[in-house]
Deep mutational scan, measured.
Amino acid sequence: MDVRRLKVNELREELQRRGLDTRGLKAELAERLQAALEAEEP
């Protein structure tokens, strides 16, 4: 998933699904989601 191409509301939805903080600027949201995705990979 390319988090840079997601819209802010899409980033927030993905973060919320993972129980993560949904507050912040788009860059912060993308960074948070990217870190979560990398942590999920085996």
Rank of each mutant, 00 (worst) to 15 (best):
E28P: 03
E28F: 00
D21L: 04
Q34K: 14
L20C: 11
E38V: 08
D2T: 12
V3R: 05
R4A: 09
E28M: 10
R5M: 12
G19D: 02
K7W: 01
N9V: 08
L6P: 02
L20M: 15
E13R: 06
T22D: 15
K7N: 15
A39T: 11
L33P: 06
R18A: 02
Q16Y: 11
A35C: 13
G19C: 12
R5D: 06
A27P: 11
A36N: 05
L37C: 10
L29H: 05
E41Y: 10
G24P: 01
A35Y: 09
R23T: 14
G19A: 07
A30R: 10
V3H: 01
R12F: 04
R4Q: 15
N9T: 13
N9E: 15
D21G: 05
E13A: 12
E31R: 10
A30D: 15
L37G: 06
E31L: 11
L11M: 15
E13D: 14
A30F: 05
A27F: 04
G24F: 00
L15Q: 01
D2N: 06
L20S: 04
G19E: 10
E41S: 13
V8D: 13
E38C: 11
R18F: 02
D21A: 09
L29K: 06
E13L: 06
D21V: 06
E31D: 06
L20W: 04
Q34C: 10
R5E: 10
E41H: 12
L37F: 07
E13V: 07
G19R: 06
R18Y: 15
E40Y: 00
L6M: 14
V8K: 03
D21M: 03
L11F: 05
R12S: 08
V8S: 08
D2E: 10
G24V: 00
A30C: 09
L20Q: 09
A30M: 14
G19W: 01
L29V: 05
N9L: 06
L25G: 14
A39I: 11
E28T: 09
E41V: 12
D2Y: 00
R17S: 12
N9Y: 13
L6G: 01
Q16V: 10
L37Q: 09
R18Q: 03
V8G: 06
Q16A: 12
L29I: 08
A39K: 14
R23A: 15
K26M: 13
E31P: 14
T22F: 07
V3P: 13
L37I: 06
E10K: 07
A35G: 12
E14S: 07
V8Q: 14
L6D: 01
R5A: 09
L37V: 10
T22P: 08
M1V: 03
Q16T: 12
G24T: 01
E28S: 05
R17T: 13
V3Q: 11
A30E: 14
L11E: 02
R17G: 11
R23S: 12
A35H: 13
D2K: 10
L6C: 00
L37P: 05
N9W: 05
L33V: 04
L11P: 01
K7P: 11
A27R: 12
A30W: 05
R23N: 14
L29F: 00
P42V: 11
Q34S: 13
D2A: 05
E40F: 04
L11T: 04
A39F: 01
E38Y: 09
T22Q: 11
E38Q: 12
E40G: 09
D2R: 06
L29N: 02
